[in-house]
């Protein structure tokens, strides 16, 4: 049995309310919140980036896996906000975790599905028996242009998953990927903020790929939505995942444990992985969980997991997602938020 042997997340303590962003740009807060179903979002501290977030999430995954860091033979990090254009985030993360030098490392980029890409390849490495354990991380300090709709959602956080054959807490039943060339959202080399196609990001992009991957993996495994206890979909806003889930035949209560976007925002590469982590926090042995990511450009990775008895042994060994989301957040006004996110031009 191959699957997840340890999982962990990290969510920064800083927040900004959707009301504060709306008021800054002369928008009606209630209309924005009703339209996107977002209340607030996480903001990285001045000293946090994809690397520090990955380290924090990975340490929580190691606590639950109860393995020595040196046993991890591959480390993959998916992000839209790797701090270096040239120098892998994974090298720093691996040193901080103590898993160098016998480790294979790569950074991935595929908009919001880079995290599940990292998970997919980590799983494949274990399945190919090239390494004993492999870690896949999705982490981001997401970018959104000032005043753009993305500014209400682009947030920070990360989740890490260690794959292996022993001490499995959630077995991988199957995977499926669905990918096309769809220019719904992009950021050119050197550009600070991404651009997107507005409404084009909906039906031809998010829904086409999420529904395509979701339907295909269900059909491939001869499973129906009612066979699953939980389902997790990428969360660019509050509405899209609920709408996609309903179109696939899932009910609200199957999606609610992972529906953390109203308080967390869209953590890009960490969005669906962190929603999955929140779902594992409450899952029971025997539960089937569907995870479908989405990355602009565009593609979706789908996974079916079956939770094992071991989940009950490891769950309490690290902080849960909901606790991180609600534990004494520090709220920023728009001015401090702009400073934290480097939106203010400073002298050298």
């Amino acid at each position: 049995m191959i699957g997840i042997v340890g999982y962990g997340s990290y969510i920064p303590r800083y927040r900004i309310r959707a009301d504060d962003i709306a008021r800054q740009w002369g928008r009606d807060p209630e209309t924005v919140k009703r339209g996107l179903l977002l209340k607030e979002k996480t903001v990285p501290g001045l000293d946090e980036d994809t690397i520090t977030i990955s380290v924090a999430a990975a340490k929580n995954a190691l606590r639950r896996a109860e393995i020595e860091p040196g046993e991890i033979g591959a480390l993959y990090i998916g992000s839209e906000s790797h701090p270096y254009a040239v120098k892998p985030s994974g090298t720093v993360v691996a040193e901080a975790l103590g898993i160098t030098p016998e480790v294979h490392i790569a950074d991935f980029e595929f908009a919001c599905k880079a995290g599940t890409e990292a998970m997919y390849v980590a799983y494949a490495q274990v399945r190919a028996e090239l390494v004993k354990y492999a870690m896949g991380i999705g982490a981001d300090t997401s970018q959104g242009a000032p005043g753009d709709a993305l500014e209400f959602s682009a947030s920070a956080g990360g989740s890490a998953f260690i794959f292996g054959k022993e001490k499995v807490i959630a077995a991988v039943i199957d995977t499926y990927s669905y990918t096309t060339d769809t220019a719904d959202f992009w950021r050119r080399e050197g550009a600070f903020y991404p651009l997107h196609g507005g409404r084009f990001t909906g039906a031809p992009a998010y829904f086409k790929h999420i529904l395509g991957a979701g339907r295909a993996i269900l059909k491939k495994n001869n499973l129906k939505p009612e066979d699953f206890t939980y389902a997790v979909f990428h969360m660019p806003n509050g509405k899209f995942p609920m709408s996609a889930g309903k179109r696939l035949g899932f009910k609200r209560e199957q999606m609610e444990p992972g529906w953390i976007v109203p308080l967390m925002g869209n953590t890009y590469s960490a969005s669906s992985p962190t929603a999955f982590s929140a779902t594992l926090d409450i899952a029971k042995p025997g539960d089937l969980i569907l995870l479908v990511s989405f990355g602009s450009g565009a593609g979706s990775d789908a996974f079916i997991f079956k939770v094992t008895e071991r989940i009950n042994e490891v769950r309490e060994k690290a902080e849960k997602v909901k606790d991180m989301l609600t534990r004494s957040p520090i709220y920023l006004d728009y001015g401090r938020y702009a400073k934290f996110r480097g939106k203010i031009i400073m002298n050298e």
Partner: peptide, 20 residues
Amino acid sequence: IIFRKMYPEGKTGIICYGYK
């Protein structure tokens, strides 16, 4: 003790990490 960014060496230099 946590792992955090200490400072970047200007806009183009390396990013230094450490403990806080």
